[in-house]
Design a protein around this nucleic acid. Sequence first.
DNA 1: GTTAGCACTCACGCTAAAAGAGTGCTAACG
DNA 2: CGTTAGCACTCTTTTAGCGTGAGTGCTAAC
Lengths: 343, 343
Amino acid sequence: MELSQRKEKILAAVVEHYIKTGEPVGSKTLLSALDITVSSATIRNEMAELAALGYLEQPHTSAGRIPTNEGYRYYVDNLMGVRPLDESVKRRIEAGISLKNASPEAILAKASEFLADMTDCAAVSTTPSGENATIKRIEFVPVGTRTGMIVLLTSTGVIKSKVCRSDVDLNSSMIEKFYNIVKSSFLGLPLDDIDTATLQTLVASMGADALTMIPFVSAVSELAQEAMRTMVMLGGQSNILRYREDYGTTAYELMDFLRRGEPISQLLANSKEDFDVKIGGENKFKQLENSSVIMAHYNIDGDNRGSIGIIGPTRIDYASLIPSVRYLTDLVGELLTQTLNED
Amino acid sequence: MELSQRKEKILAAVVEHYIKTGEPVGSKTLLSALDITVSSATIRNEMAELAALGYLEQPHTSAGRIPTNEGYRYYVDNLMGVRPLDESVKRRIEAGISLKNASPEAILAKASEFLADMTDCAAVSTTPSGENATIKRIEFVPVGTRTGMIVLLTSTGVIKSKVCRSDVDLNSSMIEKFYNIVKSSFLGLPLDDIDTATLQTLVASMGADALTMIPFVSAVSELAQEAMRTMVMLGGQSNILRYREDYGTTAYELMDFLRRGEPISQLLANSKEDFDVKIGGENKFKQLENSSVIMAHYNIDGDNRGSIGIIGPTRIDYASLIPSVRYLTDLVGELLTQTLNED
DNA sequence: GTTAGCACTCACGCTAAAAGAGTGCTAACG
DNA sequence: CGTTAGCACTCTTTTAGCGTGAGTGCTAAC
């Protein structure tokens, strides 16, 4: 649907004014905000048409207009000025997420926290997907007479460790056997190839050693599962209270939604574009029907590996937050790539 | 201050009714809730005296009474029936926190989450203090030509690991040197002995090797710091919205308070008793002035090592939640002790 | 197509009145 | 003297009424 230039100007002004104030905006207010030499009546006519087209709505008959989700969508797609990010903001973001010698998890946790503070929204991020990751290294460290620690390192730089317990006293031949199994069956293996089926054939092939090795082998498998699971890092839940009225009764549902990692990682993984904006009910989660999500995906070594996003009310400041989220996400990608390739 | 038996009955009834409904309770309501054969006028007289003593107050002249913080305090200390926990509740708690083969962190995170769900409050827990912990084991695992992973295990079962980078290519003699340093200077050392002063003397004593060893040694020190830092596990922030009206304007402050770990760990560490209840402003944090905290401390091998607590409105259901928190905390202590001693 | 003008709608704020809940006090009672 | 019935009193809450103002939609003229 194409709009006349004047309609676009008006729509943009309504959206921007409503984002700023949270109040319905009327024709006279627009008149002064707009550098257009028409009367308020004309604006009223235009607004009536915009309402008929579904871009604006009235809370009640004698109030100003507020944007519908479609209105926001049109604004984001066509009207929003994509001004480049201010240098000072860039600097601030760079400073905000710089962490030396940190694990991917720590970097992303920091990014969520920082993004939340910067945007006054709730922020989420997912750790790099383990989809294409392989097992880079497995180490066994004896700890007690029957316990040892298994450490697993993936090609994506994720470290997972676990204490595991043997049914019999440890001895050096067992450990040697374990390393043999590791070398022959685990090293270099994609994480998602380690399912129960593979494990069973592996255990079967071990013959007499199977009994003593099972705890170790299954520990490795658990670690692989853990390393593969994308974690969701959360920040700024308290910011939901900041826009409480905008969320209405869904505020609680929203908070509750945030604490469950699974749906969030679905939400973030759902879009394949470089970045994505979901306005109100555009995403399938009814807990988010009064919220908008701005998300971007970061790349590691050129591969799309995870996402960072913010969740705010539908009247979120798209124009200035979208570039920030994108910039920060790109930066995180670079940071992770760099951390990973520092051999 | 001793109260007559009848006053105590009335106070208890007011507290319990207000906890249940959140509405000020009047003399007639009490009459039916109480199995006392007196008139409402008598109750009014008693309530007036209780108000004069500071245990009750009126939101306004013609409303019923609500408990003051002192009222809650008297109730918790003297009136609250300490009925033993229901078997089914015990069962539920046991099921809720059972995790096999889990790290202390995971157990405590799960405990917070579960406790929050069970009590409809925000729940917090702290990981075992590293105060008396020593370094049990340090392992170096080469990963790349110049990077290696250092793994540290403490006597309290905490595992911390970190990838660290050398300035020169790794070789076996360096690794051997590192293990020598570890053996002579780190193993068995209390975590809190590892400060910058010790490190400097250590580095100084290394002579020519100092330059190449510094990254590793300082990585160990960072890991020790990390292992010593008590972490705060959070659960159920969304439950704050559940009692929003009770928190009043402090709801946001409360949420914001929760996300900072430091003050919470102070709050929890502050009490030396086995368990503790802080009502309203009894704790020093003004963000909690409309909240009550129920906390208990868990022991590992008989030592007080950490805490678990819930934070709710002052009209929290003390009688039924206190035993739950205590039971769960004891259980977590047992679980951690057991996990730790399973050599 | 634009604009001035005007009637109309509806939320909002204010006031007044009525309802309701609950108290405190007084006087009588056992 | 503690207890109780009765009642006046206080203060919140609810309801209704009414003007005000913001903002619209429509019509007729430009």
